[in-house]
């Protein structure tokens, strides 16, 4: 059960942001990402950060949970910061120490700038996945991409595949745990030995897992056929999305943030 939360990301709630049309959330997230890349100075980031912080507060998602989303990407953040330090120009920090002469204030500033950019990107996009269930998300993607149907892109099939894949992640994790325990009970040892030994030790888990994934796929296909599923054509929807007032207000606020950032870029 614990795994589902961290993996599915979705954090149930009934805030305004949870209730927003998922299509609008995706569009606004894209706009937010664009804003982050438009920003040229720290003042712009301050505006974006204040906006994001208020959005997080409104969503009522615990700040700790939001910050936890950064953890898995910590390595990438540190890596980026580290390399950006070398690309700086300008005044040297330690002009007298020869082996530290490459360190400049420009480089440090650049590193901090990149870290802020990545952190805002992660928090901004994860706010969307925290407030939107995976099913709604793929549903919204399907609808946003539906114009591509005219170009013969199988939009419905793609989104159905996405939905099914996400639906089965917790199931497969469960299954992996069961099979691991069963093999452990037969004395399998996954924790000692060198890399090759450990990789070999995974075979008794992977084979039953793949076999059962195929079995499940077949069963699911049968179950869908029994209920007369035959693709997206002529399929009506249980849930009809409509943009409401809150969606329009949200988009106005987002555009305002974009405008402020552009103004800051020009004048500061």
């Amino acid at each position: 059960m614990i795994k589902d939360i961290t993996l599915g990301q979705f954090f149930p709630g009934d805030s305004v942001i949870h209730k927003m049309d998922p299509r609008m959330k995706i569009i606004l997230t894209v706009v937010f990402v664009a804003i982050i890349f438009v920003v040229k100075n720290f003042l712009g980031f301050a505006v974006a950060a204040i906006f994001l912080a208020s959005a997080v507060l409104i969503s009522k998602i615990p700040v700790r949970t939001v910050l936890k989303g950064i953890k898995p990407l910590l390595f990438i953040i540190i890596f980026t910061a580290f390399f950006n330090v070398f690309y700086g120009t300008g005044v040297k920090v330690f002009p007298d120490i020869s082996w530290l002469s490459w360190l400049t204030y420009g480089g440090l500033e650049r590193a901090v700038f990149m870290v802020i950019r990545i952190v805002l990107l992660i928090i901004g996009t994860s706010l969307m996945t925290y407030t939107t269930s995976p099913v709604m998300l793929s549903d919204a993607i399907e609808r946003l991409l539906s114009p591509l149907k005219h170009l013969k892109v199988p939009v419905h099939e793609l989104s159905m595949m996405m939905t099914i894949a996400m639906r089965f992640i917790p199931t497969l994790i469960d299954e992996t745990e069961k099979i691991t325990n069963a093999q452990k009970a037969r004395g399998a040892d996954f924790e000692t030995g060198n890399i090759i030994r450990r990789a070999k030790a995974l075979i008794p888990i992977l084979i039953p897992l793949i076999v059962s994934a195929f079995r499940r796929a077949e069963e699911l296909a049968d179950a869908m056929e029994c209920r007369c599923y035959n693709g997206g054509d002529g399929r009506t929807r249980y849930k009809i999305y409509n943009f409401s007032l809150r969606d329009y207000i949200a988009s106005i606020i987002m555009l305002a943030v974009l405008a402020i950032v552009i103004v800051i870029n020009i004048f500061f």
């Binding site: 299954e175 069961k178 069963a182 037969r186 075979i203 039953p208 076999v211 059962s212």
Partner: peptide, 13 residues
């Protein structure tokens, strides 16, 4: 202590 889990047939590999 030999443990046979429920539906053990899915552990064959």
């Amino acid at each position: 202590v030999g443990l046979v889990f429920q539906y053990p047939e899915y552990q064959l590999f």
